[in-house]
Each structure stands twice: as structure tokens, then as C-alpha cells.
């Protein structure tokens, strides 16, 4: 065969018809070997090119290349077509937006999430977590904390009384401070502990308030603990919880169980202290109380106030997300509406 015959023998139309007639992937792959494989006619033509006259070489070469490319493309395209058809036969098209099997994560309550965050900050500062009963005796809730009977500061807290013991002897704790007393009664200094937990206030019912909320308190007792240590600890907590750039401040205040006593506040994280709706345009948000543990309290738990000193602080747990996320009113936390629970 001369070279013209060789080139003419590569009949593209015949090849394409054969490709179009394939039924499955195996047919296509067999045809690929037959049409452009090592033993195919085109392979033979390609081998023969070197024997052709120089002027015929490019002509035949181009014909070979054109044939090979066209057949290969047709085979590829036919192969995908067959695969797609096969998939389509297995079932309808999938719709990923249809839904799920319904397996969902649950949600820790926002109070628990916040409490864990707060605990973790203080644990990192070297504190342990102490717990105590929610029903307390007068000694732990009031008297040991330097609220003598009839003390006007008792009126600062609306107390639930429990039908046990003498009248007004057993209460639902009005703060987590009794846990401080329990820790100091059972553990010698040094003490570095925090006390998270539920507290109760017997306030006039309203659609917005709740008779329970949660507090977290901290207590540090050792030789040489100073008010400066309190200030530094509150600043360290503020930075860890609210972020760099948020400042803490302590203003003089009054609590029976601390002296000097202070109100703990932070510069408003929303306006950087410039004044906005969240901070009532004061630039500051009051969060809780703090102070040096009153010597009377130390004496009440058998710790010598001349040898040891300490500080304590406390604030409301709900108040944090109320400020951070604007949750309102506080009763929302206890209505347990799944639409609230699933928001966090």
C-alpha cells in the first residue's frame, strides 16, 4: 500500500459510527484498543511514516494525528455518556437541600456555658471549684458572714425561709457566700477557690423576674493577701473573659462580709468606654461586689486575721450573657423555651 492508501484507510466515519454503536463501558474500551491501540491500523500507519518520502511524511503524520484525536475524544465522550446513563438508571437525582436524618446536637444551657467559661478562667489562674448546699442555715448564709440578727443589711436580700428548725433558721441561700464559709471551716489556708451556684431571692413576682439566679464567687486567703491583689485579680479576669483593652475598676461600696468593700465594674466592651445604650451612656458596666474578707468573718471560721488576710468577689452569671448578647428579661433563662435554648 502506498502512503495515500494508508492514509485513506483511516476512515473516521466508520470509526465514529462504531463508537456510537457501543452499549457499555467494556465495548468502548475494546473499541479504543481496536481503533487507536498498539495493534490498530493507525498504529501501523504511524510506524510506516518513517519509510515514506520526505514530502509525504507531514501529510500522513497530520492525518494520523487528526484521526487519533477525533477518535479518542469521541470515545471519551461516549464513555461518560454511558456512565451517566447508568447512574441515572440507579435512581433519581439527589437533592442535598431536602433535609437531614434529624440527628442534631443538643445545647448546653447558656448559664452552663457561661459558668464553664468563668470556671475555666479562674482554674487557669490557679483556683479550685467549691460547691455547697442550696438550703443553708442562718449561720452560714448570714451570721458567719457578719450579718448579725436584725442587721439592716439582711433587709438588702429578700429571703426564702424553709420549714425546718426554728423559724427563719433555715433559708434558701441568698448568695453563694455560705460556700466560702464552708470552705474556710474545712480547709486551712492557703485557699484559692471559686464558688459557682444557684441562689434564691423571694422577690415580688413579675413576668420579668425570677426567684432564682446564679452567682459565682471567689475567695483567696493566705498570708499577705492585699487589696492590690484583689485589683490585679479582677483585672486579670476582665482581660481573660472580656478581652484585651477592657479595663476593670473598683469603687468603694458596702457589704457586711468584706472591708474595704468595692463595686466591681468593667469599661463597656461595646463602646470602649465612650458611652452607649448597653452601659447607659456611663462607659462602665457594674458587674458585682468585691472586697477584703472582713476580720469578723475570719474569726468566725477560726482563722487569725492578724496572720492571714484575703479577698472575695462575686457576680451574677446570667448578667454576663445579658450584657454580651442582650438576653432579656432574666426570666428567659428559666422559661426553657427550646427556641431560646437552641440559640446558643
Amino acid at each position: 500500500m502506498d502512503d495515500a492508501d494508508l492514509a485513506a484507510s483511516l476512515d473516521l466515519d466508520v470509526a465514529l459510527r462504531a463508537i456510537g454503536a457501543t452499549a457499555d463501558v467494556d465495548d468502548v474500551d475494546g473499541l479504543r484498543r481496536e481503533l487507536i491501540g498498539k495493534k490498530s491500523r493507525v498504529a501501523a500507519v504511524k510506524v510506516g511514516i518513517k519509510n515514506l518520502p520526505n514530502d509525504a511524511k507531514p501529510v500522513v503524520g497530520a492525518a494520523v494525528k487528526e484521526f487519533t484525536t477525533a477518535v479518542s475524544d469521541a470515545l471519551d465522550s461516549r464513555r461518560s455518556e454511558i456512565e451517566r446513563e447508568a447512574l441515572a438508571k440507579r435512581g433519581p437525582a439527589v437533592d442535598f437541600t431536602l433535609g437531614t436524618h434529624g440527628r442534631r446536637r443538643g445545647h448546653l444551657h447558656l448559664i452552663t456555658q457561661t459558668q464553664r467559661e468563668l470556671e475555666d478562667v479562674f482554674v487557669a489562674l490557679g483556683y479550685q471549684v467549691a460547691e455547697g448546699p442550696e438550703v443553708e442555715d442562718d449561720w452560714h448564709n448570714f451570721e458567719a458572714l457578719n450579718f448579725p440578727p436584725g442587721h439592716p443589711a439582711r433587709a438588702m436580700q429578700d429571703t426564702f425561709y424553709v420549714q425546718l428548725g426554728e423559724p427563719e433558721q433555715v433559708v434558701l441561700r441568698t448568695h453563694t457566700s455560705p460556700v466560702q464559709i464552708r470552705v474556710m471551716e474545712t480547709q486551712p489556708p492557703p485557699i484559692f477557690s471559686i464558688m459557682p451556684g444557684r441562689v434564691y431571692r423571694n422577690e415580688a413576682p413579675s413576668p420579668r423576674n425570677s426567684s432564682v439566679f446564679h452567682q459565682i464567687e471567689g475567695l483567696a486567703i493566705d498570708r499577705g493577701i492585699t487589696f492590690g491583689d484583689l485589683a490585679g485579680t479582677m483585672q486579670a479576669f476582665t482581660t481573660a473573659y472580656f478581652g484585651e483593652g477592657v479595663r476593670s475598676r473598683l469603687l468603694p461600696s458596702y457589704f457586711p462580709f468584706t472591708e474595704p468593700s468595692a463595686e466591681y465594674g468593667v469599661s463597656c466592651p461595646f463602646c470602649d468606654g465612650g458611652g452607649c445604650r448597653v452601659c447607659s451612656h456611663t462607659g462602665w458596666i457594674e458587674l458585682g461586689g468585691a472586697g477584703m474578707v472582713d476580720p469578723n468573718v475570719l474569726v468566725n471560721v477560726g482563722i487569725d486575721p492578724e496572720e492571714f488576710s484575703g479577698f472575695a468577689f462575686g457576680f451574677g452569671i446570667e448578667r454576663m450573657p445579658m450584657i454580651k448578647y442582650g438576653v432579656q428579661p432574666i426570666k428567659t433563662f428559666f422559661d426553657d423555651d427550646i427556641r431560646f435554648l437552641e440559640q446558643y
Binding site: 487557669a124 490557679g126 492557703p190 484559692f192 493566705d222 492590690g228 491583689d229 490585679g232
Partner: peptide, 15 residues
């Protein structure tokens, strides 16, 4: 009053 941090005296924090 200058802020300082207390020496936690080797106590390790933790749950």
C-alpha cells in the same frame, strides 16, 4: 492602689 497578683503558693487550679 497598684494592682498585683497573689502568689497562689503552688496550688494548682483544676476541676
Amino acid at each position: 492602689i497598684p494592682p498585683t497578683l497573689p502568689n497562689v503558693a503552688g496550688q494548682t487550679g483544676g476541676l
